[in-house]
Amino acid sequence: MNLAIPTPGIRRRSVTGLWLRHAVSFVRYWKFIITWVLVEPVIILVAVGFGVGKLVHEVEGAPSYAEFMAPGLIMGNAMFHALFETSWNAYNRLDNDVYETALTTPITITEITMGDILWAVTRSVMTVVGTATVAAMFCWINHWEAIGILIPAIMVGTTFGALGFLFSAVAPHTTFLTLVFTLVASPMFFSPVRSSRFRSFPTGSSLSLGRCRLHLQSTSLVDLPLDILRGHISGQRYTWSH
């Protein structure tokens, strides 16, 4: 059966076949993974919304602190899930010869990379939908345009899926992968959470990190999709000119 798409060098079945493998494996263990997709975000959102949110009474440009924080948490979660999938999980697959076995079929390494990043995007979208649903249940997201969160979810999934795969490709051992979380993910997670460049949410919030702010802003790959997300959630469009 020849399912090759016209673009020379890329076989569609290789990408979909690998994606299906990840999906089947995910479904087998969904009861465990779902806690990460839904339960953890609930805990964080509730802690932030009802915990810290009670202490912070005024956030300029947002009705409440929880509503101000929700988009950042959603994107941060998506980033972690995409990264985890292509760093920790991909390294395990590498270690257990899953890719080596896949390579005995007519698949190439480029297609393996594409299949894994596609799966990271899927995980990112699932996480965003799950977390956003929880946030919507608490009425922290209440604009119909919030459906647009799928766009930044795909952006985050692609960016961090690729970044995670890069780390697992060069990692000499699993401990090395800690770096992707400590040096890449954590700073970027707190970057979108602390504030936004988006005009309606000024940077002078209580979580601004003083002199570190500029640095974090320049490294944060989450900022652009986050700004788009905030635009959708708040009903305001992203402005490119800031």
């Binding site: 257990n96 080596e100 005995t104």
Partner: peptide
């Protein structure tokens, strides 16, 4: 068909 030296079976699957 290729049988690799280490079975290369996928432990995440049945």
């Amino acid at each position: 068909g290729v049988v690799t030296q280490h079975d290369g079976l996928d432990n995440g699957l049945t």
